[in-house]
Design a protein around this nucleic acid. Structure first.
Lengths: 220, 220, 220, 220
DNA sequence: ATCTAACCGAGACGGTACGTCTCGTCTTGCG
DNA sequence: CGCAAGACGAGACGTACCGTCTCGGTTAGAT
């Protein structure tokens, strides 16, 4: 992923008056990431971010409704910057690569402390959930789509029967990959090293291949 | 799981004086869950919990170091109460059952709002991480061990080569199951219905079976 | 009093560029009075006045240094408009008349809330004190001078011995009349009705007459 | 006047819990007076007072509703401390004495900046008006009653015809004295020196004596 | 039958951050 | 160049919780 994250847009359609400073946006998001590293989510305050950015608190509140929204935008940029899917020649190698990339991203103190916090917050705030989805989740889901296309082109995976099944499967694979890496890193608090990545990939690719071979629960 | 969660233990070895009220413990944890349902994690306050429990703030702080510790204990009880592994006759059926149980638990507002919040908090607090691990994670990991034993007894899965590999595999399976369900529920914010549980189980059991059949990345 | 209050004068001698709008001055002062009525002194803000007047905040600050200066000019106009000294035939009647006029002016919400506020402000701001003096105090002091001249012409009061004593006495009478009415209205918060005006006038005119008769403290 | 001003009283009749610190009350009122001297009314902030008093902002707000209430209590103490009515042997001498005392009090920066400000504020706040009345105005009104009794005992003034007239006259005299001194000091911004005090006293005592002699407006 | 240590409720305490408001200044682009 | 619009840095507002600290009073085991 490379394109810039959606910064913030003026709500009203006004055209007069002094325009908002684009420098301020950049300084605020950088200050937010810096503060996340030093303080973590729960000790990060809007006032502190404003001070680090050399900006008044009002300027923050004019652009973001609160800490959660600000942090989502601040970390979304990191996802765009650090996740990509270089072609490594096989489905397994591609999966291993993205797993290690994602794990490295989650080892960063900014993401580690922020990601679950905003997700937790989003369980009570629909607008925040949508923001997370559009700024982070949906953008990274394309990694799965690209990876699957490549595997299909290589003949490692069969074509999807229809568009609906294709979308369902992509969502499932995304949840399995992202969920396993997040859980290993943040809940189990164990490192995602090369060995784990290999074992996880074996499990996942095995499952995808078996499914292609027509698995059904023998007890069903 | 059925046994009660470890409530709180007096730190000092004192033996004289008025003993702590056990009623208070129960009232506080119940009040905490109630407040989580009504307010969510971020709006829950110690003072509010104390008031609901009919207890002074001092009494809370005498037993728990803070909101995170209190909430971990309050939700840990729910995990013990609502997760079990009845024998459904096949590995796939057992997995599907536990996935649906876990999803139902995560749909409850108390767990939904609290779980990721305390995990986020734990990224900066080692004591909290240990508390989560011992009160929740490790206790539920036995579900995987029991399920695998049954599958091995049924002949669905081979025996593990050695104890170390057995532990690594159990951890991996646990992270994959728990991670996928959590991610689907809280991050993707989509329901874990019977269809999803079936598709996920097919993927997982397929992977386990393929691995048993000796999968290795063909590109490796 | 009838002539307009001194609005504002351009400081710099600039002559080029777009001239200032005289409409704006009127609209701003009217908006200020309106806001004083609705909000009172302490809740009145420059931004609110600007919005009411349909004017940019910049325009206000270009003409007045702050809230105090603006309000002084806004209420000074009311003093000029509502205080006059019609000849009622006797010193007592003239005093009673002006007392009731002044009381009526102080009952208006604009003056009631603003007058003491700007006076309080002026205790720490010499420029503001001068502005109050020239825009309000000195202008109304002529009422005393005119009244005394009439009374002297009628023979109710003797001529002043010299100019210095004349000025001192006029100041004293002004402070007594204005002070008593203000204190009754704003501090004691009791109405200045016809009865009070009569009693006050009796006291004042009695004192002036006694002084003319050569009062000295018998104990001195 | 000597007795202490009414500090603050707990609203609820509760008897449990940690009692309020009396030291804090004293420190806060002293800090308020100090801040008034240094900063004046409009630049005085609750946060600054709290910091000077070595007290949290919440402690201020627990006891006083706002800046106005706090300042009324802080300056009321000065009135009690600095105004008294020693017997100087004649009505005129007593009046001159209290006029000079009051003027000295009004020359203090705390009172000068605060008194008119809270009066201005009280025009929009009935509770504040009552507080000013009970903490300051009514307490000092006894000076007039005592002075009149003495003058009557000396035979300088006749007895009042009835209680209602006595109260009306006392109020009138109080408004005339206090109003004249306040207006001279704060509005005209001229000093109340011995000469002015003598001239004012002559006017007032002359009026009181003339009234006793049966003045009526000749034009009425 | 006391003693006595630790408990309990209530609520004040010094702090910190909140999110909002107003201040007075500084860009913008239009006329 | 004046003007309306509105963003800007600054900082006070009054509120909410934090976690700690008195208070007076209760409770139960050890003496």
């Amino acid at each position: 992923m490379t394109s810039a994250p959606p910064p913030t847009h003026r709500t009203g359609g006004g055209r007069t008056g002094r325009p908002r400073s684009a420098d301020a946006d950049r300084a605020i998001l950088a200050a937010t990431r810096e503060a996340l590293v030093e303080l973590g989510w729960s000790k990060l305050t809007m006032g502190d971010v404003a001070a680090r950015a050399g900006v008044a608190k009002t300027t923050l509140y004019r652009r973001w409704a609160g800490k959660s929204e600000l942090v989502v935008d601040a970390v979304a940029a990191l996802f765009d910057e650090h996740l990509e899917l270089p072609d490594r020649g096989s489905l397994g190698a591609d999966v291993e690569g993205v797993v290690l990339q994602f794990a490295a991203l989650l080892e960063r103190p900014e993401t580690k402390t922020a990601l679950m916090a905003v997700v937790a917050e989003s369980t009570r705030d629909d607008a925040l959930r949508d923001r997370i989805r559009s700024a982070i989740v949906d953008r990274q889901k394309t990694l799965v789509l690209v990876g699957r296309e490549r595997a299909q082109a290589r003949g490692e995976l069969p074509a999807e029967p229809d568009a609906s099944a294709a979308a369902r499967n992509a969502d499932l694979i995304f949840d399995v990959i992202a969920g396993a890496v997040v859980h290993r890193t943040l809940v189990s608090a164990e490192p995602v090293d090369a060995e784990w990545a290999r074992a996880f990939t074996a499990l996942l690719v095995g499952g995808l291949t078996a499914a292609a071979a027509g698995y059904t629960d023998p007890a069903a």
